[in-house]
């Protein structure tokens, strides 16, 4: 087991070191997370001026939703799509194909390294500052915080697996920057990061139940706030697990297909 895992741990470590190399990006990253939470705090404050409860959220709950939503985003977010697209378009991929490791797992473990970095260097400091400034509520209960942590892990896998799929599109496209940008905005919206899913028009809510995106942000937050619990909780976690597996498999299959095309083209 250790010998098969060792190369992936090494990739995770490299990802960790690579992000450390850019200090300007690091500091701006922290600041922009703070600004994001602050802006949404004021937007919601303006919205809640007259109302006390909208769609089952009162103002303190909404602030908790927004703040925790951005704090966990510091953890699950990664740039795997860009990295892969870069590998493919710059032709670095040829060298990486020859390594005796799975390309998909290499990228996922690099994403894990990035997330570990983010957990230590982003989540903890930005989380601390946000908790100091804004009235964020604690998780509903011990069990909901445990389930929240598990669903966070799934959120990470789902996000990384989607990014892997997007990155591979570079095999078929001249430039994937547009696709990456579209994905960015779509995930921001459909994951429920900027607005809870139950605010959506009913038809969209139904749609999004059949999509993986709500498990990146909305579901973990609903679990955190105790709005999903009991029997429902178990089924949500199961669905998340299924999505994680399905997306990983889809990535594996897509990579298999795209790889053939890469080889035909001669990298």
């Amino acid at each position: 087991m250790t010998t098969t895992l060792a190369p992936y741990l090494a990739f995770a470590r490299i990802a960790f070191l690579q992000i450390l190399a850019y200090r300007l990006r690091y500091f701006t990253g922290i600041i922009t997370y703070l600004v994001n939470v602050t802006v949404y705090y004021f937007i919601w404050k303006a919205i809640y001026r007259g109302d006390t409860v909208i769609q089952g959220f009162n103002f303190p709950q909404m602030i908790t939703y927004v703040a925790v939503g951005w704090i966990i985003r510091t953890f699950y977010y990664n740039n795997v799509d860009r990295e892969i697209a870069n590998d493919i378009q710059q032709g670095h991929i040829a060298g990486k194909l020859t390594r005796p490791v799975s390309y998909q797992w290499m990228q996922i473990s690099q994403a894990a390294g990035e997330s570990l970095f983010r957990l230590m260097m982003f989540t903890v400091p930005t989380g601390a500052v946000i908790l100091l400034i804004y009235p964020v509520q604690a998780p509903r209960s011990v069990s909901s915080s445990g389930a929240f942590l598990i669903s966070l892990l799934f959120a990470f896998v789902i996000f990384a697996a989607i990014n892997f799929l997007i990155g591979i599109c570079a095999v078929y496209l001249q430039s994937v920057l547009g696709l990456i940008r579209a994905k960015y905005f779509l995930i921001e919206l459909l994951s429920g990061l900027v607005i809870p899913i139950n605010f959506f028009p009913d038809s969209l809510v139904r749609w999004s139940q059949w999509l993986p995106f709500q498990h990146i942000s909305y579901m973990p937050l609903m679990i955190y706030m105790g709005k999903v619990g009991g029997k429902e909780l178990a089924s949500v976690l199961l669905v998340e697990c299924a999505w994680a597996l399905a997306l990983l498999l889809a990535g594996k299959w897509f990579w298999h297909v795209a790889r053939l095309k890469l080889i035909v083209q001669g990298g």
Partner: peptide, 25 residues
């Protein structure tokens, strides 16, 4: 064509917050 399409999706998504919000307020 794909680029125009993805660009348009990004535009629609960036507009989504306002649209959804005013669905409720």
């Amino acid at each position: 064509l794909i680029a125009v399409f993805t660009s348009f999706s990004a535009t629609v998504a960036s507009f989504g917050f306002l649209y959804i919000l005013f669905h409720r307020v």
